[in-house]
Design a protein around this nucleic acid. Structure first.
Lengths: 335, 335
DNA sequence: CATCTTCAAGTGAACGCTCACGTTATTTAT
DNA sequence: ATAAATAACGTGAGCGTTCACTTGAAGATG
């Protein structure tokens, strides 16, 4: 494989020192406009492109960040990832991606790999590690932005959507439509910090209504999880008139389950998702959901990370992004 | 930010030379088992991790590849991307991603960026550039694997699914079910090399049936594109009984359009997609489609790229992957 | 016993760039 | 007229590795 020209080749051709070429290509001061132009012409002629590895070595800035995410294949996360990538790219940064499949061990390996790969910072989406573990890690190494989790600590910033508030809003809407027996299908795992569950409980409490523990179940965060969860929920509680799920994928699985069980959506059961992924408006009936702008979350997260890289001393407070209710055809008033 | 220990720290601690440590961590020969173990213990104690940038500089292998793809947010491509990432990761490689949004200029920039970022190879999914342009680029720089396009040239390998054959199979199936007026909604752009169109034509020809040029239309490769395309197709040709689309997303848009136009799927119009993305089995009615295993394609592409990196002299011939018909509820026999 | 081989380890250079200075001319202030 | 400041460039070192060589000691061979 041929090797491209180096900065020395350009310098020799232009009859200047290496450093002057560096000044030209990096838009630094201490160089006259004329020589800069002359050098840039030669850069173009030779097709010279600075070697990122060498730049990284010398400057201790690799212009690379690491993204740790459960699965890029998941439509909800794909948008976050795209938001991060676009923001990174327009800032001349590159992104390494590592999928964890929600496995803590994978997450740890990703974290360590990124350190050895010399990334300038890490975005951690929906981490499995505890806040303390992350803080401890960040403290001794790199700026980290955590997405979907509230963390207030130096070296760690957090960007998240106001899930508690949005879930409350959704339940308020269903209450208003006459629903009283509303099921919640949430994710597996420990629910102590579950924003969905908190919003659910708070909504019932603030209306002074009661809910049965049977109405809250846990399932995998997939189409199949939503399907099975709904079967379980509706056979245990046939009187249920509405279901709210952890994400749109599960909601679509839920709609399928209703259809297979002969329960019409929305007349017999109202379904509400969460995420507003692209296809939610294209399923039949179209899905009511909570719009979570993943792209925007990703973009903001990346911007925050760049801030942290640029000013490591500043402590940034967590950012809460608004969430909006999107009412379509899968929910309607009880007749 | 603290800096981690370097190879020299390990060497000093172990009382050996830098090179010996290098031999130990890279599993090279020329070192005794005892000293290797001793060094590895110290590596663990100090938490030493080799610096990838420095390794890349010295060895001219960055252990990084570049992935150029239209949009990671697209479910079909997401799987390819995940297959590539997983294969890369298990081979200790990292992946840079660049989204082009099907824009040729973006593609070119991505290509050039990757060169300057010192990647060891590039995977190009569904390139916009011509074969000649890609060959020319590859010839002077890096090994490239092209996905979804047939290329036979040194330095360029190609991995693709047998779309022509699969499309023929799909039409054969629809013919067998009694359909004669079958619409094709394909992508925008020049169709001279369109595999879908070729398969479509060949199928009609081999059955000695004729089709009207009106039956083939072009639309954006999105849910909305499928929706609009179907509206156009069905209002122009109300007699049409089946539609086959460029991808599942468009097919789901098509189903929505049928529903909005009062045409029942599958009784009035049969719909067949392409890709078998996860949700296709969860829409109602579930979507008949052509299973294109994106993950596998990605995995094979990455493996091929690693082969090329390891043995730059070998010329690899294109790989055709099988595609399978998946019949669900959105297609059935004419009554 | 002299020589040859083998294995373990060390040495210096190189990779391509940036950083912190150093140098020289040219302008501005006093 | 002289000192001081500024602009435009150059110099050497260093970033953390690997690579091509060299060295040294132990064992094998005749």
């Amino acid at each position: 494989m041929k090797r491209g020209p180096t900065i020395d080749d350009v310098a020799k051709e232009a009859g200047v020192s290496r450093q002057t070429v560096s000044r030209a290509i990096n838009n630094m001061t201490g160089i006259s406009a004329t020589t800069r132009e002359r050098i840039m012409t030669i850069v173009d002629e030779l097709g010279y492109r600075p070697n990122r590895l060498a730049q990284g070595m010398a400057s201790k800035r690799s212009l690379t960040i690491g993204l740790i995410i459960t699965d890029v294949t998941n439509p909800a996360h794909a948008n976050v990832s795209r938001g991060i990538q676009d923001c990174a790219q327009s800032n001349n940064y590159n992104v390494f991606i590592r999928n964890t499949d929600s496995n803590k061990q994978n997450e740890l390996e990703a974290l360590n790999s990124f350190v050895s790969e010399g990334v300038d910072g890490i975005v951690l989406v929906g981490p499995r590690h505890t806040i303390d573990e992350i803080m401890n890690f960040a403290d001794r190494t790199l700026p980290i932005v955590v997405v979907h989790r509230y963390i207030k600590a130096p070296y760690v910033a957090s960007i998240l959507a106001d899930v508690v508030g949005a879930t409350k809003k959704a339940l308020e809407y269903l209450f208003g439509a006459g629903h009283r027996s509303i099921g919640l299908i949430t994710r597996l795992g420990n629910l102590d910090n579950s924003n969905h569950l908190q919003g659910y409980k708070q909504a019932y409490q603030s209306r002074e209504l009661t809910y049965s523990p049977d109405w809250v179940i846990q399932a995998e965060r997939t189409l199949a999880g939503g399907y099975k969860g709904t079967q379980r929920l509706l056979s245990l509680n046939p009187e249920m008139t509405a279901i709210i799920t952890y994400n749109d994928l599960m909601a679509i699985g839920a709609m399928k389950a209703c259809s297979d069980m002969g329960r019409c959506v929305p007349d017999s059961v109202a379904i509400m998702g969460f995420d507003d992924i692209a296809l939610s408006s294209y399923v039949t009936p179209s899905l009511s959901t909570i719009r979570f702008n993943g792209y925007e979350v990703g973009r903001v997260a990346m911007e925050r990370l760049l801030d942290m890289v640029a000013r490591p001393d500043v402590i940034f407070s967590p950012t809460l992004l608004d969430i909006e209710l999107v009412i379509r055809d899968s929910t309607n008033a009880i007749k």
